[in-house]
Design a protein around this nucleic acid. Structure first.
Lengths: 153, 153
DNA sequence: CGGATCTCAGATACACTGACATAA
DNA sequence: CTTATGTCAGTGTATCTGAGATCC
């Protein structure tokens, strides 16, 4: 539903943080999807490539933990990335259960493209906010997220 | 993925507003789902009941526009609500294409239950934020959302 | 006719669950 | 024996697309 006629949205919903967050996430998700689709990629691809670029070669399980992608989905996403030769998968000689996943030069180039797209998306998403306000929003969300990542006890 | 080991998350992701928003939305969505599931309901039910409560009886199309739910999904959600007698569907004598959907007394009681659950969820979700910060977050998200609901031109 | 409404069938993306074989 | 890994098949939710029938 694209234009829910702003003034008609129930006030009871409009003030609910959980509603605001999920609705904004829908917008963000669409912008991200569209931006990445233009380069024939999707969110999981960016997350995996970015993680590989920052931490270097890793097993699929480690990759999943760092990028927040379920191991079982890492498999499928890596299949797609390997097919396009953005990553290579080779058995780990030190632990024969593992695959060592490595980003290729082409993968790094693709990552740069995706980063560019995503930078534009952030700007479009946060258009109505000043730089200070964007920083505030980022800070607040980071704190909320950190809190919910903590209590694994 | 539940505990992505905070300090291992790529900084390149951790600073991306679109990532923060969608990740937070996942948390929020889980909390909401769990909270509503305890009363055998889901997000669509609350949105529809709240919209009916605030605007009164309406056609399914109008309901969809106001609550931001796709008309095609309104059908299914109303089936579930009607089955539990939280709403009634009756043909509109003035326009025979339409159903007039009305919330029942039981529906209103259910809505109160859902509101209570959701209030608790907001508190859990925003636990690390002060009241002022919660208001800031709400304000910032509202502005972002308003901006993206505007340009239907 | 064009346009709105209701309905159903299906598709997508993301996240998650359960099971299995293999190997540490 | 227990745990970790990779893989596959399947679930669930929120969203959207497309089609058809009905009616304005």
């Amino acid at each position: 539903m694209d234009n829910p006629e702003p003034d008609l949205v129930p006030t009871c919903l409009a003030g609910l943080p959980s509603w605001l967050i999920t609705r904004t996430a829908v917008r963000a998700g669409r912008l991200v999807s569209d931006g990445l689709a233009a380069v024939d990629a999707r969110g999981y691809h960016f997350r995996l490539l970015a993680t590989l670029d920052e931490f270097g070669p890793a097993s699929q399980a480690a990759l999943g933990r760092r990028s927040g992608i379920h191991v079982s989905d890492v498999v499928a996403a890596l299949n797609e990335l390997a097919e396009r030769e953005f990553v290579t998968r080779s058995p780990d000689p030190a632990d024969r259960r593992r695959n060592v996943v490595t980003i290729t030069a082409a993968g790094r180039r693709q990552l740069r493209r995706l980063e560019k797209r995503l930078a534009a998306v952030q700007d479009e998403l946060l258009a109505p906010l000043s730089p200070d306000e964007r920083a505030d929003l980022t800070r607040l969300l980071s704190r909320v997220l950190a809190h919910h990542n903590r209590p694994p006890a």
